[in-house]
């Protein structure tokens, strides 16, 4: 009993630390290559509007439903998106993202899976615009995988509150 409590407490702490690691990486476009490492081998990363999520419509803004697609996203951002510069150290639209996250919560399912949730707002400071932009607002609905040496995301679902995106998305949310 005592061990499982300690275990749960430790896992909760580890899940929250994973979230902080995630935010530190997605807030810094120069660390983009580290982003896929936050996910387990059979992980998914999905960004979907609350409207489609709740209506059961399958179209997501981003549906990286395999680790390969998660890794591809980095390739697309670095090598595909030419606007604003073709080299990988250039940023599309010279944008700088900033995640404001909280509160965050961890719940354990019967099977012991940790569900990690958090509210977020993502602002982007864009060179073409003197005003920072509210890029996205919503909720993370994540599942944390503790099977490996360090916890990773088994699933990261980004639910967007608005049906109308305020801008295109470049970097991971």
């Amino acid at each position: 009993m005592l061990t499982s409590l300690v275990d749960a407490q430790g896992r909760k702490q580890a899940a929250l630390e994973l979230l902080v690691r995630y935010i530190r990486i997605v807030d810094d476009p120069r660390r983009l290559a580290e982003w896929p490492d936050l996910f387990g081998d059979s992980a998914e990363y999905v960004v979907i509007t609350r409207e489609n999520h709740e209506r059961g419509l399958p179209i997501a803004v981003i549906r990286d439903d395999t680790k390969d697609r998660i890794i591809d996203r980095v390739t697309i951002i670095k090598n595909f998106w030419g606007a604003g510069g073709r080299a990988e150290d250039h940023h599309y639209n010279e944008s700088w993202p900033r995640h404001i996250v909280g509160p965050a919560w961890v719940e354990f399912t019967e099977s012991g899976e940790a569900r990690l949730g958090a509210n977020f707002a993502v602002y982007a400071t864009v060179q073409v615009d003197p005003e920072p932009r509210l890029l996205a607002l919503g909720e993370y609905q994540d599942v944390v995988d503790f099977s490996g040496e360090i916890p990773k995301f088994k699933s990261k679902k980004v639910i967007l509150d608005t049906s109308v995106l305020q801008d295109v998305f470049v970097y991971p949310l």
Binding site: I59, V61, I62, D65, W81, A83, Y92, V128, V168, F169
Partner: peptide, 23 residues
């Protein structure tokens, strides 16, 4: 479902750049 937004959507491999150019 997997292809559509990934190619011709606002976070897609192709469409996104039009937004940058037109802006």
């Amino acid at each position: 479902v997997r292809q559509g937004p990934e190619v011709l959507g606002p976070a897609g491999a192709i469409t996104l750049e039009d937004a940058a150019a037109l802006e």
